[in-house]
Design a protein around this nucleic acid. Structure first.
Lengths: 348, 348
DNA sequence: ATGCTGTGTGGGATCGATGCCACAACGACT
DNA sequence: AGTCGTTGTGGCATCGATCCCACACAGCAT
């Protein structure tokens, strides 16, 4: 449906504050004061200006404003893969918190590619964002931003320990708890499926796994640590390889949701029943884990809360640039479901 | 780790093109030409300027540039709920396509709240985005943007039929196919779980459902159409209500993934076996549907492709503002899995 | 010499909003 | 009458990059 009469004002070019001022019969300065609320304006004049602005459909030009003020009310959010629910929830949390606090979000999905990541932060710098919240994949990224004097909050994993604020969870402790849960059920051959080691997340989860085994006096078996690629198929293949042997583990700890999905699919393909033939613990609880039968025991981290906390940290930093850097550690809980049970031999 | 020696240049304020020009020993005009590639610059001069820029860590100020050029290279993307995989994939597709074509994305998650949506588009206007891709919840939103002369592409659902470009799928046809699939299996009492009717998506899916029943000569039974809220719990309650009765339907068509999740959970709670006691077809295929046992038969729409197509449409529009509006209809496929089977009485 | 073309560079206005500063008008007080 | 403070408004420079236009200079033909 087309609007009734083509308003002669709105069909023309976008209105500027100068036009608003003219229509209201005041100067640009006065119009600016009336609209922003900074400075003195007589009440009747303020109303006249407001009226004129709304008649013209005036919306401030954020470009011109930030140019003059040398600051913007937008923040950059950089994630590795929006299609992954973890990042999507993180981004949603960050976005909502930012909106709530009067900021807009420039979101970039860099697909975990270092070159794209660098291009992304250059775009952030060009846009003169007030700050950046990022799940980076290289240390270079944060360094670049800090050199440009743009505050950064690293989320989920750390690359620039101590140089910037961060929001993470206790990966090591949570991984230890997950592994201990399996040990307490009687498992002794526990495989760890993991995609990388370079990030703090992977390294710490691996350490937590090792901690628990060591505490239980179980010698470290390199064979049981399975490095795989980052996507479902790679995980599936990695899981098949370790689960196919006669001497297969009785339990698998999958270090993230994608690896858990791969393990789940591999087990199904091999006809392994969970938890009878195999126990499974995942890191990162996502919806399907509570929809399948049995449900998958998982370490639940609240990605939305991480996003919110990251934006909060960033704005705290903007409010007080001089303060020492802070790392916020959010808690994660082990949610026990049906995928973990005592191993077959002890149960029998 | 702190960087070795605090570079005296980079610790100071951000470099401007004026400083680059001075370091290279040329005028601002020449520096601009050297960096943008618009206009004549002798090769050695170009190199000197480039060198100076990189020494100073110069990054163009997009604010100043857009102010002068009266246009930006960013587009607004508005979605209703990033935590929903459909929107997340849509946003990911849009974001990647935009990046590929040299645009940056301002992403806003308006939580499906009309007021937030209006605030979001005002922010887009203030940022002077080149265009907007949106899954709107009111017609007002698109109208406002068009009045500001900002091109809009509506995705997933339509509110402003004919006034702007759009990217959708054939909801009616797909719903018809899904329902027909159940009819062909022998179902006669097929419930439709649906959350709303105001959007084209809901309305068209309902029409498709009705089409199929009518074509099969089955009288319309208002009792079998269950309106619910938009979240999992509401869907679960709606599903329980219809599935608890003695005269329960033999199949459910859930009009989106959230409704399907609610139905799935409700069936589990009531001890109904799928597909023995109940067949289930979902609209919108998401990962859990292929992870559960049995898998859920679903209409699969490619949200990422929709996002890509929307951005493409938007840029086509920017290239040719005068062209007639276009609606791109993407295909959706019915993926048959184990959740659909002949009803118990005919099978027995 | 004069004119002409092609190559290369710089001056300066411009985009829109802001905010400092100056100043006008007016009443109140010394 | 003169001074002061209060209230209210406008002039103007400014932010950084762009790009139109003028102009300088070289080489070459008339």
């Amino acid at each position: 449906m087309r609007s009734a009469a083509p308003d002669p004002v709105t069909v023309s070019r976008r209105a500027t504050i100068k036009e608003v001022a003219e229509l209201a019969g005041v100067s640009r300065s006065t119009a600016s004061r009336a609209l922003t609320g900074n400075g003195y304006v007589a009440e009747p004049v303020r109303l006249r200006v407001r009226q004129a602005a709304s008649e013209l459909g005036y919306v401030v030009d954020a470009m011109a404003r930030s140019l003059k003020q040398q600051s913007t009310r937008s923040i950059g959010v950089l994630v590795s893969d929006l299609r992954n629910e973890f990042y999507a929830n993180l981004a949603a949390g960050a976005s909502r918190q930012a909106t709530r606090l009067g900021y807009t979000v420039m979101l970039i999905d860099d697909q975990g590619i270092p070159e794209d990541e660098m291009a992304a932060v250059e775009a952030f710098v060009a846009m003169r964002v007030a700050g950046v919240v990022a799940t980076t994949v290289t240390a270079e990224t944060t360094r670049f931003l800090l050199r440009q004097r743009i505050p950064v909050v690293e989320v989920d994993r750390r690359f620039s320990d101590g140089d910037c604020d961060a929001v993470v969870i206790d990966n090591r402790g949570s991984a230890r708890a997950a592994t201990r849960h399996l040990l307490e059920l009687g498992h002794r051959r526990i495989a760890l499926l993991i995609d990388e080691d370079d990030w703090t997340t992977g390294r710490e989860r691996r350490e937590g796994y090792a901690d628990a085994l060591e505490a239980a006096g179980i010698p470290h078996d390199e064979e049981l640590v399975v490095p795989t690629g980052w996507d479902v198929d790679a995980a599936r293949h990695g899981a098949r390889a370790i689960l196919r042997g006669a001497d297969r583990p009785t339990a698998v700890f999958a270090a993230n949701n994608v690896l858990a999905e791969g393990t789940w699919r591999a087990a199904a393909e091999l006809g392994l029943r969970i938890p009878d033939d195999l126990s499974l613990v995942a890191f990162d609880d996502v919806p399907w884990m509570s929809m399948v039968t049995p449900g998958v025991t998982a370490v639940a981290q609240d990605a939305g809360a991480m996003g919110r906390a990251a934006v909060q940290s960033l704005l705290d930093r903007l409010a007080d640039p001089g303060a020492g850097t802070r790392t916020v550690v959010l808690s994660a809980a082990l949610r026990q479901r049906g995928s973990t049970a005592p191993p077959a031999d002890t149960a029998a």
